[in-house]
């Protein structure tokens, strides 16, 4: 009962956040200089009749708030509007560009967690050992390396010297899974490196403090095997900040994806965002930002619920 009520309040709050974000995006694209009609019409812009007809057609001559409310109404019906420049529906564009970005982000998160959890467990359990120091130093270095700088290095090493992976381009899954994985191997590595470093550092420091708790001592004195203590007793109470940051990193990954997609010429949401900003294609920009905001907020909502499942204390506090 308590969980349900908490979930409903949270959901309402998140709805508010999404509304504010959509309003801000809408205002930003309207307030800032640069008229899509100029881009659309080119030299014909000076022809007043044509210009006004186009503005009428796009609904750009109505008052600001009316435009926003109309936009929201359309969004609620799943209509994000038609791109000014390419004449495609925004939803259609998003559908085309989503697979590459989603594949990249999900795989990046999955691989990073798979790497970070054992690394952190080992590092924390043998803290101050040589391996721990190596892991800590390496993750510190990886946090400091900008994605595009790392990408340069990877392309030089794995595409030029060894010729293992293609330097640019994306092959959809439908054209073969091996080619697909080869095409995203380098961009994925860039994202995974940064993420794994963040997760390992975080989980390591949480684990070190958990391992000093009395219940760990208790478990040890009961003679439980180390592996069991680490996996069953230490990991769960140490994973809360990891989970929080896991959610927040989806936002960071979007930023990373913009750069990485541009670097490796991948057809994703990031390149779509940049193209449409440069072309003043407002409706597409709004669609992209709205999609990102909604997914980010939803993911973090799910993570909030995950807390209550993982931590009985949160459950009781909510009830």
């Amino acid at each position: 009962m308590g969980i349900l009520k908490g979930a409903v309040t949270r959901l309402l709050k998140l709805l508010a956040v999404v509304l504010v974000v959509s309003f801000l995006t809408f205002s930003l694209t309207k307030l800032l200089p640069g008229d899509p009609v100029v881009v659309l019409l080119g030299p014909q812009y000076s022809n007043v009749e044509v210009r006004e007809a186009v503005q009428e057609d796009l609904g750009l001559n109505k008052p600001f708030l009316t435009q926003y409310v109309q936009y929201l109404g359309n969004v609620a019906q799943g209509d994000l509007g038609r791109s000014y420049t390419s004449k495609f529906e925004t939803t259609e564009l998003l559908k085309q560009k989503l697979p590459a970005t989603i594949e990249l982000m999900l795989l990046a998160q999955l691989v990073s967690l798979t790497l970070a959890i054992p690394l952190a467990l080992f590092s924390a359990f043998r803290s101050n050992s040589r391996t721990d120091k190596a892991i800590t130093t390496a993750s510190f270095g990886l946090i400091s390396i900008p994605g595009y700088a790392f990408a340069v290095f990877l392309v030089w090493l794995f595409a030029l010297r060894f010729n293992w992976f293609p330097a640019i381009g994306y092959q959809p899954i439908s054209e073969g899974i091996v080619g697909n994985l080869r095409s995203i191997a380098l961009p994925l590595t860039v994202l995974v490196a940064g993420l794994t470093a963040v997760y390992t550092r975080l989980l390591r420091s949480d684990l070190i403090s958990t391992l000093q708790e009395d219940f760990i001592l208790m478990a040890r004195s009961k003679g439980l095997p180390t592996r069991y203590i680490l996996a069953r007793h230490a990991l769960r109470p140490s994973s809360f900040s990891l989970i929080t940051v896991f959610g927040i990193q989806f936002g960071t990954l979007i930023g990373g994806a913009v750069i990485i997609e541009q670097f490796f010429v991948l057809p994703g949401i990031g390149s779509l965002a940049i193209e449409s900003i440069l072309k003043r294609d407002y409706l597409v920009v709004q669609g992209v930002v709205l999609l990102i905001a909604i997914s980010f907020v939803l993911i973090n909502f799910l993570i909030d619920i995950l807390y209550t499942i993982l931590d009985p204390r949160v459950r009781r506090a909510g009830a």
Partner: peptide, 12 residues
């Protein structure tokens, strides 16, 4: 937090 920071920056 919900607003993608880099995209905001690019837009500005």
């Amino acid at each position: 937090l919900a607003f993608p920071a880099l995209i905001l920056l690019i837009a500005i």
